[in-house]
Amino acid sequence: MSATVAVSTRGIVKDFESGDATARVLHGIDLDLRAGELTMLVGPSGCGKTTLLSIITGILTPTAGTVNVYGVDLGSLRGQDKVAFRRARLGFIFQQYNLLPALTAAENAALPLVAAGLTLKDAVPRAAEVLRRMDMGAHLDKTPSHLSGGQQQRVAIARALVHGPQLVVCDEPTAALDAHTGLTVMETLREIALDPGRAVLVVTHDSRIFRYADRIVRMSDGRIESDQLNGETHHETTPPAAHWHAAARRRAAGVRDSLLDGASHA
């Protein structure tokens, strides 16, 4: 497993003001995410997971503390630079997919490339290639309303990967899916995380998918409660991640190369 630190936060504090009242939702978060790892950020609702995710991706600015993503201090980026950084380095997978209903699966997956300046005509074939490698070749021209939840989430995953990001963040990626589809999606994410040049951060409170994590960070009341390699505390109820890794690596070997090659060349 690679030891390269992909994301490093130090002393992250976030306050939200509402009228005269100030609510502190993050209390000095220190966290490291490593490349080649799938880290899950777990904890009860309102514990600050999504706020921390928003800060790590540069969408929210912390009240105090620093965020460093692949050597870039997000605090040093302003306005358009931060937007450009997100566009180039990050991939997003949302709970509600947030696909554009008027666009086909391939066009939706091509959006980050179009945002980066490519024409839709040039971007779509590259997005289609990523979708084909995710067994979505038969659905390229379908609009989201003609796709199942699992298929829509795979389109969202393709959209997150098409431009070869270094950090993929997923917000409750299985919350809107049934159990079987959720596990299929997690296997895809697991395969993505096998790339040693990429880190995957998943925010979830779906305990069924914890076993796909390399590392589980538990949050409570705006603080990190524990940060452990998977299996260190939960091996009695879930298969040790290390064992799963070995199996998964073998199973995904063929798929991985083509999928990640396609994404990183996009």
Binding site: L90, G91, N98, L111, A116
Partner: peptide, 13 residues
């Protein structure tokens, strides 16, 4: 939400 998603993935104002 779609506009929000576009902004999140790096589409500027």
């Amino acid at each position: 939400r779609q506009f929000g998603a576009l902004k999140a993935i790096g589409v500027g104002n």
